[in-house]
Amino acid sequence: MIQKVLAHYRLTQLSCLGLILFMAVFIAALLWVFRKGSSPFYAELENLPLQDSDRSLKGRI
């Protein structure tokens, strides 16, 4: 039924727009995480949970 109802729906530009928009953002995110020079940054980030309480006395920026 939902399928049938949606088939009535003719605003295809909107669907296309959404599809392209999301795909663009998704690809952008992919490129973003693999940008050059980001490795040390992510190495730092991924260690955040491991250093929270015990080693926090030092404090980091």
Binding site: I2, L6, A7, Y9, T12, C16, F22, F26, A29
Partner: peptide, 25 residues
């Protein structure tokens, strides 16, 4: 990170919404 963004999209967009594809070129 990719996991995160794909989840945010996968449900909102690609979930029940894929039905809309029937009306697309």
């Amino acid at each position: 990170i990719i996991h995160f963004w794909s989840l945010v999209f996968i449900y909102i967009w690609a979930g029940p919404h894929h039905l809309l594809y029937t009306a697309l070129p």
